[in-house]
Design a protein around this nucleic acid. Structure first.
Length: 494
RNA sequence: GACCCCAUCGUCUAGCCUGGCCUAGGACACCGCCCUUUCACGGCGGCAACACGGGUUCAAAUCCCGUUGGGGUCGCCA
């Protein structure tokens, strides 16, 4: 362990956003590449929006991505781990209050008795008059007597912003200087006793000895508030690194409503977690050479925080799709098979009726063709169920034009299949090629109708490997079915 | 509105800090060709960018200023 401590602090509000995933990933890579500690902390201070069961989704998404944490809350049957817990903010309320009271006692914060209505009205007035919406500071200098007079009334606690400027040396954004006059005295504890985000993060980061705060640059302005709080609380200041955000394909903030905003959407869609991870890290980071396809291990090896870019990136689905294909091809056929079986089962196919070795071969003949795991269904469904219909366009092309010839061709195909004793890719190929040569026609003349008869489609895996896997008996049955079908065309035509 | 951040092909980016090697490199996408039994995969080639305007300099994508565009923050959300 290097002493480096980083964290990801999502709020459990129902799902895990793609932007959170990128932040988590960068933190994790930084920790793993430096021998540091990666911490998961759940920011569930907003009791109205956070639900305990949502935390599950966050953990689930992280697990799926392969981002494991060294310290963090309990998850299902895993106990909480780490020496700086608890790791749920809802369980740390006493710490926030303790620290807020310390600030109060030290005169670095004060009680504010202004009501929400009062403040809203004030803000509204500022908006109309085009003034910056700032708190007036009404309660900042209340006398002891005035405070005592308000005893019993609900109050919030505000941080007394000190005069001066704050300079942040951001690892990504560079030097950022902000004058404190840009800030009003912000609330750190709500009247109901809940800590506000700013207080909670700083207390947690301080107490958990976080050394590097790596998060989205939507927090860049907040960082100044946090530094002021760090100093007021007397904690050691961490280093900051503000990551550019992930935008949608139109360049807008990635809306939660958009498909794909939820990390788990990608699992549903048949994407490999290692592909998503690879894609996400490339959105703002390059190794400096031309490598683009990375395994998790290779990423840990190559990652450096210095090479992180500072401009935001638009999400590019086609590029992710390409990377997914690259990762699918990198797997062994057996590995790919394991990933694809649940999908086929879910589609209702009785895959377990087939031997493992056979299933692996079936996967292998699709491996170079499928962009996502889900595409396996369209490429292999005919292995499990007989074609329910024949693709209309292909029927027109191969059968309907000259049904009589089509019947003859299918009969020849039936005979070829029947006569093939070596029912393998090579054996079938030899038979087809010999016949085609003898007849003086291209092999395609036989291949296309065969594919249509066996699979019902015009696209799919290579015909000979597919037929070999299907087996002679099923092939013959399906040719017969096709023959019957074409004969009905012939009859209706006459 | 105030403050902050960002700005190279349609997209992700290399190059920028430490000006000349940049007639700006790679990848995705797109287009063409090759391979080929379909669809793919793979191979080869093509299209395509330094946001704009001023400086500084012998020389600027690279440094400085301004403009424009995009994003963020300004909550008793996180």
């Amino acid at each position: 362990m290097s002493g480096i401590r980083v964290r990801i602090a999502p709020s459990p509000t129902g799902f895990f956003h793609i932007g959170n995933a990128k932040t988590a990933l960068i933190n994790w890579l930084f920790a793993r590449s430096k021998g540091g500690t990666f911490i998961l902390r759940l920011e569930d201070t907003d009791t109205e929006r956070s639900k305990p069961e949502y935390a599950d989704i966050v953990c689930e998404a992280l697990k799926w991505l392969g981002i494991d944490w060294d310290e963090g809350p309990s998850f299902r049957d895993e106990p909480e781990r780490g020496a700086y817990g608890p790791y749920r903010q809802s369980e740390r309320k006493h710490l926030y209050l303790q620290e807020a009271n310390r600030l109060l006692k030290e005169g670095k914060a004060y009680k504010c008795f202004c009501s929400k209505e009062e403040l809203d009205a004030e803000r509204e007035r500022a908006r109309i008059e085009k003034r910056p919406p700032r708190y007036s500071g009404k309660c900042r200098n209340l006398t002891e007597k005035e405070i005592r007079a308000k005893e019993g009334l609900p109050y919030s606690i505000r941080f007394k912003v000190p005069p001066g400027v704050t300079e942040i040396d951001d690892l990504i954004q560079g030097k950022v200087v902000t004058d404190h006059t840009e800030f009003d005295d912000f609330i750190i504890v709500k009247p109901n006793g809940d800590a506000v985000f700013h207080l909670a993060v700083v207390v947690d980061d301080g107490l958990m000895k976080i050394t590097h705060v790596i998060r989205g640059d939507d927090h860049l302005t907040n960082a100044t508030r946090h530094v002021m709080l760090f100093r007021a609380l007397g904690y050691e200041l961490p280093q900051f690194a503000h990551l550019p955000m992930v935008l949608d394909e139109k360049g807008q903030k990635y809306s939660k409503r958009l498909h794909g905003a939820n990390v788990l959407d990608w699992r549903e869609d048949g994407f490999l977690p290692e592909a998503l991870v690879n894609y996400l890290v490339l959105l703002g980071w390059t190794p400096g050479d031309d490598r683009e396809v990375f395994s998790r291990e290779e990423l840990i090896e190559a990652f450096t925080i210095e090479r992180l870019g500072k401009s935001p990136g638009k999400f590019d689905y086609k590029r992710l799709l390409w990377l997914n294909g690259q990762h699918i091809r990198k797997l062994t056929a057996a590995e790919l098979c394991e990933r694809v079986l649940p999908i086929l089962r879910k589609a209702g196919f009785d895959v377990d009726a087939f031997p493992k070795e056979w299933l692996i071969q079936m996967t292998a003949i699709c491996q170079d063709r499928i962009p996502t795991l889900n595409d396996i269904i369209g490429y292999t469904d005919f292995f499990f169920v007989e074609p329910q219909s024949y693709e209309e366009k292909a029927v027109n092309k191969h059968w309907r034009k000259e049904p009589q010839n089509a019947v003859q061709t299918l009969e020849k195909i039936r005979n070829m299949i029947e006569e093939t004793s070596d029912f393998s890719h090579d054996g079938l190929k030899a038979t087809f090629e010999q016949k085609a040569a003898a007849e003086g026609v291209p092999v395609a003349h036989f291949i296309h109708p065969t594919r249509l008869a066996l699979t019902g489609k015009s696209v799919g895996p290579g015909l000979f490997e597919l037929a070999a896997l299907l087996g002679k008996e099923k092939c013959l049955q399906r040719i017969e079915r096709a023959l019957a079908f074409v004969r009905t065309i012939e009859e209706t035509k006459i």
